[in-house]
């Protein structure tokens, strides 16, 4: 069996006195699709933000493709990673946010092509071509010169996905990417994610409240509760009849 592309080992996270995560162990395989569910405030967002280097674990380690994300070795000593180290390790990770976080001063096309040009040192022409291709793929080929403020929520979120995808990440993180959208716009975004998932190349971690969607595309579902992974398994196992009572009552609230 292949090596995991991401490995969390005994990861803890506190904000001040509040212990949010109390020992997360998690292996993510290349191309594996993992859905993370759990009550509000259980730390789902925090789990993926630590992988994206937006939040530093209080304890434990996260290893990405064999490299320790938050620690580096210097003169045979383990120390906190500096920016250079973080940039080396997080290059294969992309993230889509709940509130899109598009760059409002740039056009849709510029939103997509800026990072390939400046971060990956790709030529302008090639970055532009690939960005246009990617925007066409998410159905926004006719909006290239528009600014984010001129788009609907669903369109913004599709731009955000294109922007992350042109960086060709090996791991994509999705943080409740449909929960800020009007209900009628949710499906267009889920369709795009399904398309990406079906290509099968990337590992994906999806924090979501869309249970049917999770069941549909995930290889594995994690139920986060009380600061730990309280239950995990295939969608059938988790959404079927797990014996975990907290999970049952959590799921119950989503069924009409």
């Amino acid at each position: 069996m292949a090596n995991p592309i991401v490995k969390y080992e005994n990861v803890h996270k506190s904000f001040g006195e509040v212990k949010v995560l109390k020992g997360i162990d998690l292996d993510l395989m290349p191309a594996e699709k993992v859905a993370v569910i759990g009550p509000s405030g259980s730390g789902k967002t925090t789990i993926i933000r630590m992988l994206m280097t937006l939040e530093q674990p209080t304890l434990g380690s996260i290893v990405v493709d064999g490299k320790n994300l938050w620690q580096m070795e210097k003169n045979d000593q383990l120390m906190d990673a500096n920016e250079k180290h973080l940039r080396q390790v997080r290059g294969d990770i992309g993230m889509v946010f709940q509130h899109f976080n598009l760059f409002p001063h740039l056009t849709i096309l510029e939103n997509c092509m800026t990072a390939p040009i400046h971060v990956q040192k790709e030529s302008k022409a090639s970055a532009k071509n690939r960005s246009i291709e990617m925007l066409e793929k998410v159905g926004l080929g006719d909006k290239l010169e528009n600014y984010p403020s001129q788009l609907s929520g669903g369109q913004k979120q599709r731009v955000a996905m294109a922007r992350a995808l042109v960086m060709r990440p090996k791991i994509m993180l999705f943080d409740e990417v449909t929960s800020a959208l009007d209900p009628e716009l949710v499906e267009e975004v889920l369709t795009v994610i399904r398309g990406i998932a079906n290509e099968g190349k990337m590992a994906m971690v999806l924090v979501t409240h869309e249970m049917e969607f999770a069941q549909d595309i995930a290889d594995r579902v994690l139920f986060l509760d009380g600061g730990v992974i309280a239950e995990q398994g295939s969608p059938d196992e988790v959404f079927g009849n797990s014996e975990n009572e907290r999970l049952q009552s959590f799921l119950h609230r989503f069924r009409r």
């Binding site: 992309g94 946010f97 976080n101």
Partner: peptide, 24 residues
Amino acid sequence: GQTEAATALNMSSFQRMRLVIFPQ
């Protein structure tokens, strides 16, 4: 969120300032 999006695109802190934060 702008800084975070720029970080997720693996920009350095200088690039984040120059390309994302400062222009806004």
